[in-house]
Design a protein around this nucleic acid. Structure first.
Lengths: 250, 250
DNA sequence: TCCTGGAGTTGATCTGCATCAAGGCGGTTC
DNA sequence: GAACCGCCTTGATGCAGATCAACTCCAGGA
């Protein structure tokens, strides 16, 4: 469903830096690769570190190489809403804007591949493939954001939790084994209860209660706080409120 | 704040079709205009008509010329969430995908400027400016979607209503008078109470009650059901929960 | 003129989630 | 190993918004 799958599969890896792949490699234009190579640099962050604050000057665009970052918005009184989850190969920043629109935070140890903004914009102006790849990626993110709007506006707490678990499970499974059928899946939650709450528009207490309820009902198994097994992916999907044939969420 | 403002201003009009303007005119490449001209056609819809159903084959991309359309998602049990509001100059459809992802509905009489998808994709592949303009537009929509996520996840009913009114008021004011300062504004609501509810993740009763409450508190004045005056835009903004300096919403 | 039906309002009641509060469970530090 | 701290769980209670229901308003049609 997601165009992300191909790049996340190790078999199609074509370099350490996702944006190289996603922006260019599909067409394999040697020149563009070479030019991108010259303006890129890597940065790493520790789990919990803030990459950039909303409103700060942001003179680069970047893509996630390894780890997970989050985009969050905060209201004056402290209410927080996570508006994006950045996984390996996802893009952050936007050509043509010089300041960040959201707080970007590393939730796990994180490596990003950065490109200085000005040279990147120039490169984009001269090589159509880059803009086209970015457009595809952005349209995917827009679809994901809109599916998340349905979740935030209309789903119950239980459906929200089930949806989040399904997304993480599906992504995790396809990372490990792209063509695996989704019977039983085991993975580690990359988010705290509070982060889950911020993503789902809930409180951490409600997240905790619903996790316990799903466990009690045999939909999930919990080993410690973070290690989750989904005995039946189909049973989990039944709790999400979605119709069976997936969606656009990352 | 929005890059939409320039095109909506009549003074910068450069043709009846927004996508021509937004995709190309900023650079004024005569050839591209000419080519776009050859593959475009207009369609009109009456208020209430459905433009396309989610899942249907969609062999065109289009932009709104006049009127308002909505994008909605529906769950199996009938819960509905509006995920986008298409105003004049907004784009719908996506290159590279052949079926619609949402229901698209005309809420007012609507004229759209359509381009057959295949020729449009070919044109996009050969003319970098189009992809770049589309990328900008899509990034704007993504910002708007993310701001809406904050609204859906964390705002109270009153804040949601105030935010929606502020957005409509601001857009309406800038349409009529781009540089007007936002003191007192009068406009007609283009949405029914139910549509407002679907957009805000509320029920129509709650929308109605909060409208009455805002009226009682002197934040808005109502003349009939739809005709609204905002005596003080600042007072309205105080009810939105946003910090003062606007946002990315359309 | 009355009739009809869609849109909106308002009231009474219910409920899902938030809020407030009190612990429990590992892991780390000294 | 005791003390601490971040993360999580669970319970008791409150409330915003959903739900159910009755009613008004107004435009259009016969």
């Amino acid at each position: 469903m997601s165009i992300h799958r191909d790049i996340r599969s190790p078999s199609q890896d074509c370099g350490a830096c996702p944006i190289r792949h996603r922006a260019v490699c599909a067409r394999c234009e040697a020149d563009e690769l070479e030019q991108l190579e010259q303006i890129k640099y890597y940065r790493s962050y520790e789990a919990g570190q803030t990459v950039i604050w909303s409103g700060d000057k942001m003179d680069f665009v970047a893509s996630v190489v390894t780890g997970i970052a989050t985009l969050t918005q905060t209201m004056e009184d402290g209410r927080r809403q996570m508006v994006g989850l950045l996984l390996p190969s996802d893009f952050v920043g936007r050509p043509g804007r010089s300041s960040a629109a959201y707080d970007v935070t590393a939730t796990t140890d994180l490596v990003m591949c950065c490109f200085r903004r000005k040279p990147f914009e120039e490169l984009m102006a001269s090589t159509p493939h880059i803009a086209q790849r970015l457009l595809e990626m952005t349209l995917d993110e827009l679809d994901a954001a809109r599916e998340w709007m349905l979740l935030l506006g209309r789903k119950t707490a239980r459906e929200k939790i089930a949806s989040l678990l399904a997304i993480i499970a599906r992504r995790d499974a396809s990372l490990k084994e792209p063509r695996a059928n989704l019977g039983s899946i085991t993975f580690d939650l990359p988010l705290t209860r509070e982060e889950m709450a911020d993503y789902l528009g809930l409180t951490l207490e409600t997240v905790s209660r619903q996790m316990s309820a799903l466990k009690r009902d045999g939909i999930i198994r919990l080993d410690g706080k973070r290690h989750v097994t989904i005995p039946s992916f189909d049973a989990l999907m039944d709790e999400t409120g979605d119709d069976s044939d997936g969606g656009f969420l990352v």
